[in-house]
Amino acid sequence: MSFAFDLYVDRPSWLHRLDPRTKLAFVVFSSVLLLSSSHPLVPAVFLLGVHGILWSGKVPASRLRWAWQRMWPITALILVLWPVFYPQGDEVLWQVWRIRITTQGLWQGLGTALRVDALAFVFLVLLFSTDQTRLVRGLVKLGLPYEWGLTLAIALRYLPTLYGIYTTVSEAQQARGWVVGEGNFVRRIKSYLPILVSIIVTALRLADNLSLALAARGFQSGTKRTYLRELKLSPADNICLLLLAASLIAFLLVRFQYSPGIHLR
């Protein structure tokens, strides 16, 4: 069922119980680390580690398979195109006309591909184990204005609805003999007009009603808002945050103090 564009899988695990802020900190830490090192080993180790976290967090294997199915085309693309378009270094493996393949190019391609995969999976750790309400609550708690958080949550909530409206509207017009126009870009865009107009009108009506519904439920009534689920950092959260902080310091030390060969030049 496509009732939600939601990756969340409800499971009783330590990962699910962690405060969304802790997981956000993990995402930020990992992104910094991954973006500032290009040796293929770093993202490779990360990928393994993240899979370990997902496994112990009881995220079902079917979700991981789903994620990899979506990741492999881009992975393959980077692996093939990177060495072709960024032929750095002198160690030429293969050359035809002006296309050179170098060892360094291959390594960097592998590094980039793994880095993209690792980044994606780092975000998936957050998205697989945090429902959208808690995620938005976490962001609000970190300083995002509540109205923005609500807007974000509503946008996520109504994506499937808008998709449903699109399906119905295009079916309604197809039943009247409408077909996607052929020919150049402008013609094709123009042929979508009957669908776009109906969708926009319907969406505006929806938005209008939504604002009334919010008012009917006392939104912005002047009373200070409370929350059903207050986010609180548990001992587990504190341990994780400490570990993250320690890793970050260690990384920074290694990276700038001793500047060893993490960087392949």
Partner: peptide
């Protein structure tokens, strides 16, 4: 406009503080 039945009901109550 919420993600679960429970949150849906909670919304109005949160507004009431």
């Amino acid at each position: 406009f919420n993600m679960t039945v429970e949150d849906e009901i909670a919304f109005g109550l949160e507004s009431l503080g």
